Amino acid sequence: MMENNDTDSAESMIKKCLEDMNNPLHIAVTGRSGVGKSTFLNAFRGIDNKDERAAPTGVVETTMKPEPYPHPRHPNVTLWDLPGIGTTNCPADQYLKYVEFEKFDLFIIVSAGHFREHDAMLAQEIKKMGKKFYFVRSKIDQNLHHAQRSQREYDEEKTLQEIRDNCIQGLEKQGVESPQVFLLSSFDLHLYDFPALQDTMERELPSHKRDFLILVLPNICKSTIHKKKEVFRSRIKYYAILSALVAAVPIPGLSIAADSSIVAKVLQDYLNGLGLDEKSLEKISNATKGSFSDVMGRDEMSLFWKECN
């Protein structure tokens, strides 16, 4: 049986943990029409553009006001599709007030070419607020395809560095100091600079927000999966303390019922975070043209998945 002071300490720890786990993370994605921000937003959330939960895409301005898109498996994390700064619907001098700037934790400024004066102005305003921002140069796959067809001696790494340097120099000329520019293709997030982008965001977020970010990152490489495993492992102690607190209550059967509920929730979190939930597995089976049962694998895996659901 726990002593009173130990119980009070445990309750305080659990309360703080729950507060941190329920603290929302808001990520703003902005850019002019046609630069691929909606496609990037969808890819970050692990869904494709045809999904009913996807942000609408198009070559014309489809975002007229800030639109929230909660992560499909982690609703406390919301990505926001913001209208491009300086558009007819959102003049530059009214932009900050219009999008309610202060509620976002970090900003991703997307461009498919040169970053413009309005992009640089936006970055400087974000910096004044003490928040983080990142420049994303999108559609790199298209640029490389064009370079491969037009250059006599094609060098992918050299082409990527030239694009990156060009973006950085352009932003510096517009007054942005040491801009961070990441090159990526939303259709191939595992390539180019997306791993570097996610590592940088993870490093620069406060610790209680960092875990949220890690859990919603697409499972594009082993390092991301290992980081998720460490987040889950760090939370085990809180579940153990919660179980002990319930066990301290002298009501027959309560401890068993509570432990079953805790285990079910933990396993469901593991499935969601590691991409082993039903929708993710169906997506894999469709992409690989295999059956759902093939993706599920052995009978043990199928039984584990059924027990968790």
Rank of each mutant, 00 (worst) to 15 (best):
P68L: 12
D81E: 13
N4M: 06
P66M: 07
P66I: 12
M21C: 09
V77S: 04
L106E: 01
L41R: 10
T39H: 06
C90Y: 02
F101D: 02
P68T: 10
E11Q: 08
P66E: 06
I27V: 15
V99L: 08
E102R: 08
P56D: 05
E52I: 12
H71W: 08
L82E: 02
G86N: 05
R116V: 04
T39R: 09
M2Q: 05
T39W: 00
A55T: 13
R53E: 13
M21W: 13
P91L: 06
P75L: 06
P75G: 09
K15P: 03
F40Q: 11
L18E: 15
M13E: 15
F40I: 06
I108M: 07
E52R: 15
R45F: 04
D105Y: 01
P70T: 11
G58H: 02
V110Y: 00
G31W: 08
I14L: 12
H26I: 13
P70A: 12
F40E: 12
A112S: 05
G86S: 11
G31I: 07
N5L: 03
E52L: 14
P83F: 10
V29E: 03
P83D: 09
K65S: 14
K16E: 13
K50I: 09
R32Q: 11
T88S: 13
V99W: 11
P56R: 14
G113I: 01
T78H: 04
H74P: 02
V110K: 01
H118V: 12
T30I: 13
N5Y: 00
K103Y: 10
I27N: 00
H71I: 01
R32S: 11
H114L: 07
V77G: 05
V35H: 13
S12C: 02
I47T: 06
F104V: 02
V99D: 03
E102I: 07
P83I: 14
G31K: 09
D20P: 01
C90P: 03
K37Q: 14
T39D: 04
N5D: 06
M13R: 14
F115L: 01
D81Q: 01
D81T: 10
N23W: 10
E67Y: 10
D119S: 00
D105C: 05
I109R: 03
G36Y: 05
S111Q: 04
